[in-house]
Design a binder for these strands. Structure first.
Ligand SMILES: [Zn+2]
Ligand SMILES: [Zn+2]
Ligand SMILES: [Zn+2]
Ligand SMILES: [Zn+2]
Lengths: 166, 166
DNA sequence: CCCGATTTGATAAGGATTATAATTCTTCTG
DNA sequence: CAGAAGAATTATAATCCTTATCAAATCGGG
């Protein structure tokens, strides 16, 4: 954690930016919620718990700055708000997302599944790929399992009824 | 065109919706700008040329309705507005996009490049894929060619200078 | 033609993000 | 260490996109 913050600090300094207490608090919130997909408002509320004097505008500016530095990626799942997603340190691609249309959960795939596809795109469409966004919409493993359990249950009930009838 | 509108009309009727003149005008604009990625406002302005009395709210409502019917896909390229993209008729997947970070152009890939990846995701992450969004950010073929041409030019100029010096 | 339901248009309301301007903090210099 | 210049922050106003509201218009069946 501290190491990571120090490296971000260096990145900021390299571009003549400072790691102010507000910026540090914001980065800490992002690190502590690494697997979440927080909106600016979410971040603001969490930062306020530690640094109650911070303003919403500062959070927006800091997130914008971190996006510029590629510390976070700004992503939009179609619900009207931008969300900010910490990049894996050293990752050279933006991870993929699984959005559940049933429960709303957002899971991540850190592994890069697009290597071959990108090669194809560069060759066939003559397009130099610099970044990508890949999101799958569907039903998450938790909801699938719940469904399966329900189906089993229904089936058992059916059998009971059969027995009763006979 | 007319056939396509008729089929959309049937889809609407199947769900007890009407193809009102305003809705038809909106669909026509989408069909006439099939390869574009229009925002609600863009659509509104174009529809107004043919049906000046239409209201912005109706356009939003119609686009929402068409999204529900899967006639269009709503997509967001991160510039703060939703864009509406006509689905290829009969396509069972949402096409992919190439966004140029240099000139802003958005090109389309109609071919489905994710078949294998989706199979892997279903198997390995136990996630039932229903839809996807794939966008590549990079440099389009036009900008690449322009760059190459400039490089060639620079190189020629260099050679000329060499000659002059000698 | 009349009735009930749907759809529309104008406008208000809402929500997210950005712009503004006064103030505070940092850093540098003498 | 005081003073000045520059960077960053805060609170708030402004803006932009989208949705909600509601009276009026339209449609379709009897
Ligand atoms: Zn993520
Ligand atoms: Zn789920
Ligand atoms: Zn380009
Ligand atoms: Zn498209």
């Amino acid at each position: 954690m501290e190491g990571r913050i120090n490296r971000i600090k260096k990145q900021l300094h390299a571009q003549k930016y400072k790691l102010t207490p507000q910026r540090e608090a914001t980065v800490r919130v992002l690190l502590e919620n690494e697997q979440d997909h927080l909106s600016a408002e979410d971040v603001y509320l969490l930062v306020k718990e530690k640094a109650p004097e911070i303003g919403l505008a500062t959070v927006y500016r800091t997130l914008e700055l971190l996006t510029e530095l590629k510390v976070v990626d700004k992503i939009n799942f179609g619900d009207g708000v931008s969300r900010y997603d910490l990049r894996q340190e050293g990752a050279n691609h933006f991870h993929h997302h699984l959005v559940c249309i049933e429960c709303g959960a957002v899971d991540e795939i850190q592994e890069d599944l697009l290597g071959d596809v990108e090669k194809l795109v560069e060759r066939r469409w003559h397009f130099k790929v610099k970044d990508h966004r890949l999101t799958f919409h569907g039903i998450c493993h938790r909801c699938l399992e719940k469904r399966e359990a329900e189906n089993r249950q229904d089936h058992e009930n059916e059998l009971e009824h059969e027995v009763e009838k006979v």
